[in-house]
């Protein structure tokens, strides 16, 4: 398994002076997702005719009010939700193939930790599934916990940690198997503002070090602008893409950037795109 070998370049910083690769990572064509109605009525249309291209190494956010299908879209890409119509291609393969190759890392809204396992063994779990030798696992777990700043909490059980720390364990676990694509479903929405800002910076640092493609679902516009290269604005009933907005803010970004006029301008631009809905 090639994925198992420790890639030397994994933790090298990305050089932003070089042009970003324009290779397509995920391609979505005319995607429709419908859910059958429980009482035998017409099916509920969650996504209708979604077309989207995501580039390799890109940080892309899906933004929209509840019911716009942003989570459904993420789940369809993760192969956790079947498409009714249309096609999703990830690196020229189907989402299912990519999932079976264990190339996805998922972070949910709640940390989804296994409360009978310690922090270390939670991070370790995906590697156990890959059949990684124990020695490599131990080293990798330490590395991941160091990356999210929780090395000294390895022996704790999840319920002994704060919400923010639990979410960081979730991120460490998602990154543990070196996924090519990181899928994050409102990972910070349950956290307080201070913890959230800290994790935003951490996430950008980790992203910069690992060069993953990140798909980030949120309903928080500021969060989306701060993190992303591009923002996909979605609208409900039925769920569809209503706008795609480029975020041309320089990287690396710090908290200060939130006070610049450029930042504010993009936030208003995203907000205005909602008003048309």
């Amino acid at each position: 398994m090639a994925v198992l070998e420790i890639m030397e370049n994994e933790f090298q910083e990305r050089d932003f002076t070089l042009p970003v690769e324009q290779k397509t990572e995920i391609k979505i064509e005319d995607l429709c997702v419908e859910f059958p109605d429980k009482d035998g009525g017409d099916p509920v249309v969650a996504l209708k005719d979604v077309n989207l291209e995501i580039r390799q190494g890109e940080f892309i956010s899906l933004v929209g009010p509840s019911g716009c299908g942003k989570t459904t879209l993420l789940r369809a890409i993760a192969d956790l939700q079947k498409a009714t119509q249309g096609k999703i291609e990830v690196r020229g393969q189907s989402p299912r193939q990519i999932r079976l190759q264990k190339k996805y890392g998922i972070v949910f809204q709640s940390p989804v930790l296994y409360d009978w396992r310690t922090v270390r063994r939670n991070v370790c779990m995906p590697m156990e599934l890959m059949g990684m030798p124990k020695k490599d696992r131990t080293a990798r777990v330490s590395k991941m916990l160091e990356l999210v700043g929780l090395l000294e909490f390895g022996k704790h059980y999840p319920h002994e940690l704060s919400g923010g720390m639990q979410q960081r364990v979730g991120i460490a676990r998602a990154l543990a198997i070196r996924p090519e694509i990181l899928l994050m479903d409102e990972p910070f929405s349950a956290l307080d503002e201070f913890t959230k800002e800290k994790l935003h910076e951490d996430l950008l640092r980790i992203w910069r070090k690992t060069n993953k493609t990140v798909l980030f679902v949120t309903h928080n516009i500021q969060e989306a602008v701060f993190l992303s290269d591009r923002i996909v604005v979605m609208s409900p009933h039925p769920g569809r893409v209503s706008a795609v907005i480029d975020v041309n803010l320089e990287r690396p970004r710090g908290i200060e950037i939130k006070e610049t006029p450029e930042f504010t301008a993009i936030v208003s631009q995203v907000r205005r795109s909602f008003e048309g809905i």
């Binding site: 993760a78 999932r99 264990k102 989804v112």
Partner: peptide
């Protein structure tokens, strides 16, 4: 909890696992 199961699915875990 459905999300815990989904986590396993996203990692392509088999039934036995």
């Amino acid at each position: 909890g459905p999300q815990r199961v989904e986590l396993m699915h996203s990692l392509a875990a088999g039934q036995i696992e």
